[in-house]
Write a protein that binds this DNA or RNA. Structure first.
Lengths: 190, 190
DNA sequence: TCTATTTCCTATTGATCTAGTAGGGATATG
DNA sequence: CATATCCCTACTAGATCAATAGGAAATAGA
């Protein structure tokens, strides 16, 4: 039940790439991303290599090079990316659809643990296989605008446009039902 | 997104202990459980030690010793057990309620990844913190009876009662809504 | 062409975790 | 006392994680 750092950085990178591109900045440099999000550069490079090999990003090298998304954000599902980097989503292999392995229990059909874990698996994949990069980018942008905050990797020194390009807003407000966040939860309305 | 073997065996042990006890067999031996479920004995012993220290099981040693549940099954939640053995349920610590740790991202409130992972965490805990051992044991027993199967660890050589004791059946059929299982999915009705 | 900047590629490493194994001690039964 | 059980400590081979290191190849501008 854990996302590796590698996986976490990969998703962060994709999301940032998505946000930047949506704001008219289709290409980001690894170093840029690393400093802003405080990730180790060399590690991030490795991750990009992996993402590139899988067709999620493309790159340009040399001066003013960088990485950009290689396909439409609406076709990048989180589940698929996580599977690529961290392996199967299921808590135990005997409930994995994509990478099933029989377990050691004598009777799989009547295994209570399996029933429970199948539900857990389904709950996880229901979210991760449904939401795409487009969804998350959209929601994040909405939040950022609502609170009048500029995403950090856009505070570039040179050539930063003073006015943000008009944003697409395909969904009505409240389209996706993310639980509102609130720090560590606990009490909410005082 | 993964349950360790240690965690898996712990849950298996508890479930079997629950089933056995519900059938009038309050105590099981580690060796017995290990052979029937095909788990390494010594490893299982270690796990029992841990479960005992946390108050889930109690033990009796010497000849005819064994392990039994130390508290009512309805008070044993899966989430708690897994947290004990495998640590936090949340995919990343910054969305963990029980073991929150701030992550490296510059702005937690506007972090898209965090929003998504919070949903995943909630989906997981919603299941694991709701279902108790009592629930799973009940469902499993129902399934076993429906299909007229005897749980393997009850096929003990000596002193096995010929007639199973009357079972409690506190819930109407279909009370808990587990997805019906079906082998590896794929095609179903040929 | 030369230099600076970027991605690309391969190898290595220290730390931690996983899934056990090993060996024997303490305790209970008959 | 013999036997069966849990109890306790230590150890380990292997994998995985999260980087780090060093340089090669490509690109842009002077």
């Amino acid at each position: 039940m854990k996302l590796s750092k590698r996986g976490e950085y990969a998703l962060r990178a994709l999301i940032d790439l998505g946000i930047a591109s949506e704001l008219g900045w289709p290409m980001l440099q690894a170093s840029e991303l690393a400093t802003k999000e405080k990730l180790p550069i060399k590690f991030l490079e490795q991750i990009f290599t992996q993402l590139k090999a899988a067709g999620y990003v493309k790159s340009r090298r040399g001066k003013f090079g960088g990485y950009s998304l290689a396909r439409p954000m609406s076709q990048i599902k989180f589940g698929t990316v996580i599977r690529l980097i961290d392996g199967p989503l299921a808590p135990i292999r005997c409930v994995s659809q994509m990478a099933y392995v029989r377990c050691s229990c004598p009777d799989e059909v009547h295994c209570g643990l399996r029933m429970l874990m199948l539900d857990v698996r389904n709950a996880i994949t229901k979210l991760l296989d449904r939401y795409t990069l487009a969804d998350i980018v959209e929601i994040t942008l909405r939040k950022l605008r609502r609170d009048k905050v500029t995403p950090p990797f856009l505070s570039r020194s040179t050539k930063l446009r003073s006015v943000l390009p008009p944003m697409v807003n395909r969904l009505g407000d409240g389209g996706l039902k993310f639980n509102s966040v609130g720090p560590t939860s606990g009490r909410r309305r005082k």
